[in-house]
Simulated assay, not measured.
Amino acid sequence: MCTRSRDLLERLNRTGDVRLEPLQKADVVDRLSTALGRRLSQDELMASIWWLGDDGRVCAAAEAAAVAAAVATGVPVPRWLYRVPGAGPLSETAYRWVAANRGRFPGTTPYCEREPANC
């Protein structure tokens, strides 16, 4: 599920403004932790996708997906939809359910198996 979602975002990245990195890459947890001002645990890191903006803004899960989709496509709609009253919490609930059940969804070869040099 994670790799398939990553690959979709890569295809949507028409602006070239989204840099996709595996969470397993050595310096990713350090950069996210520095931006957050606290150390992320391995469990926190792997629980969801993360967005680290050029401005230092960090978000995770459904919000990170909405921001990444908006930046990648150059269309702000996903970000706007996330901000509609009630939509953010509903999106987060759906994201957590999908994340908890991601092993049940069809997937593809995990990115770090496919591209070990990048991990």
Score class of each variant (00 low, 15 high):
53 G>A: 15
90 L>M: 15
44 E>Y: 00
52 L>N: 06
6 R>C: 07
74 G>M: 08
26 A>E: 12
29 V>W: 02
66 A>S: 14
90 L>S: 13
107 G>A: 03
106 P>W: 08
93 T>E: 05
39 R>S: 12
34 T>L: 10
32 L>Y: 07
51 W>E: 03
63 E>G: 00
70 A>W: 05
31 R>Y: 03
46 M>G: 13
27 D>Q: 09
71 V>P: 00
15 T>N: 12
26 A>Y: 07
119 C>W: 02
29 V>K: 15
112 C>I: 02
109 T>P: 00
76 P>K: 02
67 V>H: 13
97 W>I: 15
70 A>I: 08
115 E>K: 00
81 L>G: 06
7 D>V: 04
91 S>N: 07
37 G>I: 12
15 T>W: 13
69 A>P: 00
23 L>G: 11
2 C>Q: 09
89 P>W: 11
38 R>Y: 10
42 Q>R: 14
43 D>A: 15
42 Q>M: 01
118 N>M: 04
49 I>E: 11
44 E>N: 01
108 T>F: 00
51 W>C: 05
107 G>F: 07
99 A>H: 07
115 E>D: 02
111 Y>D: 01
24 Q>T: 13
77 V>R: 05
59 C>V: 05
85 P>V: 11
74 G>H: 01
52 L>W: 12
45 L>E: 00
118 N>V: 01
